[in-house]
């Protein structure tokens, strides 16, 4: 199983809070496929900085309101 990237996001929660926006609608708004939105939501793929900004703009929020970063634990 792939190691999850340390980037977290609230995309699913924000979609649902904003009238149940579909993954396909978000994908269309930011110019990626629905499967890429699914991969981002599941934490399987960390979007580019540009896509992260685009997603934030869709929700009228700042990038840090949508995405977070959890540094890997140091041993």
């Amino acid at each position: 199983m792939a190691k999850a990237p340390p980037i977290t996001n609230r995309i699913r929660e924000l979609r649902e809070s904003q009238g149940g926006m579909s993954q396909a609608a978000l994908a269309e708004a930011i110019g990626v496929t629905r499967q890429t939105v699914i991969a981002i939501e599941l934490g399987k793929y960390s979007p580019s900085l540009e896509s992260a900004f685009r997603i934030s703009r869709v929700f009228n929020l700042g990038i840090e309101d949508v995405f977070g970063w959890e540094p890997p634990h140091q041993n």
């Binding site: 110019g31 990626v32 496929t33 499967q35 890429t36 991969a39 793929y45 979007p47 580019s48 896509s51």
Partner: peptide, 8 residues
């Protein structure tokens, strides 16, 4: 028709 996105 769409070009490949960043993940693809």
């Amino acid at each position: 028709d769409a070009p490949a996105d960043e993940r693809e």
